[in-house]
Amino acid sequence: MRTVTSPEQTISEAEIEHAVREGIRRYFDDCRARVPTFIDRHFHYPGAITTNRRALGWDMLRAPINLLWAPIYALACLTKILLPRRTGLIWLHSLADRVPAGFTTRVQHHISQLILVELLNNGQESPLIERYLVEALEAVYDRHNCESIDHQKFSELVHPLIADTLSQYRVTRTAAADITNSIGCTVLGAFAFQKFTPGGIGLGVVLASMMAKTLAARDFILGETIGGWYYSVFPPEPSLATTASVMVAVMAALAAFAALSGVIFDPVQAAIGLHRRRLHKLLDHLQQDVTLSTQNSFRPKDQFVARILDTFDMVRSGFL
């Protein structure tokens, strides 16, 4: 930023930079102060119901597609992290840059708009951060009797950062739904079948085995009762068709559940502080990027946790 001079006074770059940093700091401090109210309004009951009821409709189709696409997007993100642009594989880095995060569901769009309007702009139509910046700079310029400067370049920097940060936050919704499914499958397998089923694949294998046992016992030559005893000792191997069909049914049920799981798990995440930590991390990274004029650094780890759980599920089920 250039030093501004007038016939009377000179404003140093250090003064301007200090004013900008102070305005940014005050803005993000106020944003953090709004986080508890924001969470209470939208992630606790009854707000969680209002937030997640938008999943009814096309989101029931978008959510399953996002879950299937999530491993590909996670691999693209990992590629960008492990392969800096200066390496000889810059073409691979560029290819990973073009991989989309998936479909934006109505719930994701709604929450992004809530963060933008309520958390970042406090209900104002115009970007609130600019007002903080203008106030901080005007105080400096008033002290030196200088004319104000144009803030257009600052706006051009901030808006893409906010858009990219909100895009990354939407990815956490898909990851959270995936993690929720893994936890739900584990709990269901433990209590209903006394089996360790760390995901949809594991649950599908267990259900396919149970179906194969039931069908084999029904057709047992000495009767279903004796067949049940026999196949309890010598369980039959389910056919590939049976396993595949059961897995498809389980995945479809999990996908439908994922679209609406926020009604149950948003209040849980709010109660244990996950939403608070995630929003504070979003604001911390956004403040850092705006202050240092860097690219978006907000890369939540939720999607990688979800992929680790998926991999463990496949290993446990014998698919890897």
Rank of each mutant, 00 (worst) to 15 (best):
S12W: 00
R26A: 12
C31Y: 01
R32I: 09
A33L: 08
T37C: 01
R41D: 09
P46A: 05
T51E: 09
R53S: 12
R54N: 11
G57I: 14
R62L: 11
N66Q: 07
C77F: 05
L78G: 06
R86Y: 09
T87R: 10
L89E: 14
A96N: 06
D97L: 11
R98A: 13
P100E: 11
G102H: 08
V107R: 04
Q108C: 06
I115S: 07
E118V: 08
N121K: 00
N122A: 15
N122M: 11
G123F: 05
I129F: 13
L133K: 04
V134I: 12
A136H: 05
A139F: 01
R143S: 10
H144Y: 06
H144E: 04
D150M: 01
L166S: 09
S167L: 10
A175L: 05
G184R: 02
P198M: 12
G199E: 08
G202T: 03
V206T: 14
M210W: 13
K213G: 12
F220I: 09
I226N: 11
G227Y: 07
P236G: 10
L240T: 12
A241D: 14
T243D: 03
T243N: 00
V250F: 01
V250S: 01
A258P: 12
L260Y: 12
S261K: 03
G273Q: 02
L274E: 14
Q288P: 12
D289I: 03
T291L: 15
S293T: 14
L309Q: 07
T311P: 07
